[in-house]
Simulated scan of single mutants.
Amino acid sequence: MEKSAANTVYRSYVALGDSFTEGMCDDVLSDGHYRGWADRVAQALATEPAGATEPPAAANGPAGDGRQAGPGFRYANLAVRGKLIGQIHDEQIPVAAAMRGELVTLAGGLNDVLRPGCDIAQVEQALGRSAAALLDSGATTVVMFTSTDPTRRLAGSARLLPTILRMKAFVEELGRDPRIAVVDLFSAPCFDDRRLWDEDRLHLSPEGHRRVAEAVLEALGRPAAFDWRAPLPPAPPRARTEKLATDLRWLGSHLGPWIGRRLTGRSSGDGRPPKRAELLPYEG
């Protein structure tokens, strides 16, 4: 069935989720916030003329890079790093539903999966209720995501694969609704490349955010600016000593603090407000 997103011109966009959607580890903007793939999508959509029946061809680079935002387009980003899907459902969904954005992106659940003892049935329930509430509020299109496959790049992540595959199947089932567009990151081997990830190995690099933005625009029926699935040029081989030094730095700077937060029940997003809490004109 043809997705309702194809050739639809959106005048409002609300982004929901955790650090993935907040944009962590992308370029830092003048206001101190990360840019992120959602901002890149907003910039591209903001250039589309109101009332157009076909989206314009991409210009001046992928995902809207280099374009000037047009009048009338509004954008909010309620995502906050560290949020679990239950928190996204309770804190972000009611606000987003009241905003009545035409386009909504919803990503969540991976923070739950990373925690021992994750109840995947509860994660699916909260994710499904969130998507239903957004559609009931009048959203024209809800974009959802499958996770990348961590087992192809992170040692010790094989235990996560059954749960990630179950979530993938659940999201794909939700995508049978023509109002829900699913971005399949799991099946894109380009995300096995460490260069698409920050040194913390959990958050996307600027190139990773650029590719996710293009994937979202493709799911919305926009003409391709580049092949976001294409592999990067081969990287020069790394010496064993360099790999060891990188692993030790990661253990001390990233994995250790992450484990510490889990043991104490803290989150990196505790007390942090969304970077765009209101649905306001976008002037990127």
Rank of each mutant, 00 (worst) to 15 (best):
P233Y: 01
R229Y: 09
E173Y: 13
P150Y: 05
A139F: 08
L251A: 13
F145W: 08
H203A: 02
D184R: 12
R261P: 00
F170E: 03
D227R: 05
A169S: 13
E172S: 15
R211Y: 01
S205E: 08
G256C: 11
T246S: 14
P206F: 02
R238N: 11
G252Y: 07
D227V: 06
L165H: 06
V142N: 01
V143L: 01
A225R: 08
S253E: 13
A155T: 11
H203Q: 05
E214T: 04
F226M: 08
T140E: 14
E199V: 14
V183S: 04
P231S: 09
A239L: 13
R176D: 13
T140W: 14
P237R: 01
W258G: 04
E218P: 03
I164Q: 05
W197V: 05
A181L: 02
R210P: 00
D193F: 12
T246E: 15
I164G: 00
P231Q: 07
L202Y: 10
D192P: 10
F191D: 00
A155V: 10
L185I: 10
P178R: 14
D227W: 05
R210I: 00
G156Y: 03
A213D: 00
S253H: 11
R261H: 10
E218D: 13
F145E: 04
V142F: 04
G175Q: 03
R238C: 15
T146A: 07
L160P: 04
P234H: 05
A169H: 12
R261D: 10
D247Y: 13
L232G: 00
R166F: 07
F226W: 03
L244Q: 11
W228N: 04
M144A: 15
C190K: 05
A230Y: 08
